[in-house]
């Protein structure tokens, strides 16, 4: 089987999310990559070095600069004439593009696969991960999105893919990019961090989040996360949200601080290796999944913890 993997990048470098997709694709067959964008020579070189990659298709065109699905999906659909499976990471970009490709190919997409069970058989979470479905496609071609935390990352070196320019596609003329507010941060990214410190509604304000959660994360070199309640209340930006409709994370250690543990939140973090919960309610559902639970007022416990971890 020949697979085509969507390379997620920021114009300069391949994003980590791509690497798990390469691993999933390699379980199906030959791995080809698609690098689409504007001025992406560097990204293409980096992509070609990923272990196990055969060919890298490079579509360099201003119309592909901002991942507009109206422009990208027809390009992918055209390349799929000579591939059997299209795989994209289950990121907001992948989720935006892949179903549009699937419909152009008249294929039912299989979303957020967790494992490859056979050439057409996969597992995927449903009901916010409260059930796992094993599903088998009967379509002639496959369109899959891949949950990043469910597959090992392919090595970023050792590959020797051949780079091939693609001239297909262009501007469909129905959409344009206006602007973005992308947070710049020195911290590790949520989805690849080893440690995550998340705060919930209990914080009460953005000032308290800064004062209580951030120092602990600083001390541990951790990424910052939050529950939906904390995001909705404006304590932190939307891209901090962990959960069914936010980011899916699986760090070595996840701190849930002042978070009750609603199923929608658990859906995003219950595959973390170790879960630490601090909550003043001893019956909070978060304690049912926590490896270490501390029943305490977070405003006392967290500053103390931050201090003591440095001792």
């Amino acid at each position: 089987m020949k697979t085509l993997v969507w390379v997620e990048h920021d114009g300069k470098a391949v994003k980590d999310a791509t690497l798990a997709v390469v691993t999933a694709a390699a379980k199906l067959g030959e791995v080809h990559l698609l690098v689409a964008g504007s001025g992406v020579d560097g990204v293409a070189k980096e992509a070609a070095a990923i272990a196990g990659v055969g060919k890298v298709h490079v579509a360099d065109n201003a119309a592909f600069g901002h991942n507009l699905p109206e422009n990208i999906a027809p390009l992918v659909a055209e390349l799929m004439a000579s591939h059997d499976a299209f795989l994209a990471p289950a990121t907001t970009t992948g989720k935006n593009i892949a179903p549009r490709v699937a419909a152009l190919l008249d294929v039912m997409q299989i979303s957020e696969i967790l494992s490859v069970e056979g050439p057409k058989t996969f597992t995927r979470p449903i009901y916010a991960g409260n059930a796992i479905a094993t599903v088998e496609s009967s379509d002639a071609k496959l369109v899959l999105t891949v949950r990043g935390t469910a597959f090992e990352k392919a090595a970023t070196s050792g590959g020797s893919g051949t780079v091939e320019a693609v001239s297909a596609g262009g501007d469909a003329g129905i959409s344009s990019f206006v602007g973005a507010e992308i947070a710049k941060s020195e911290r590790p990214e949520l989805t690849s961090a080893k440690i995550i410190v998340s705060g919930g509604r209990a914080l009460g304000s953005s000032e308290k989040y800064e004062e209580v959660i951030v120092p602990l994360a600083d001390k541990l070199g951790a990424a910052l996360g939050a529950s939906r309640a904390a995001v909705d209340a404006g304590y932190v930006p939307n891209d901090y949200q962990v959960g069914q409709t936010g980011k899916i994370v699986a760090p070595q250690v996840y701190f849930a601080i002042g978070i009750s543990g609603a199923i929608q939140h658990l859906a995003g973090m219950k595959d973390s290796k170790t879960i630490v919960a601090i909550n003043k309610d001893e019956d909070a559902p978060i304690f049912q999944v926590a490896d270490f639970g501390l029943v305490a007022d977070l405003f006392n416990a967290v500053p103390e913890l931050t201090q003591r971890l440095g001792d």
Partner: peptide, 8 residues
């Protein structure tokens, strides 16, 4: 979007 907000 994953990194924040985007307008189209």
């Amino acid at each position: 979007v994953d990194g924040g907000l985007e307008t189209v």
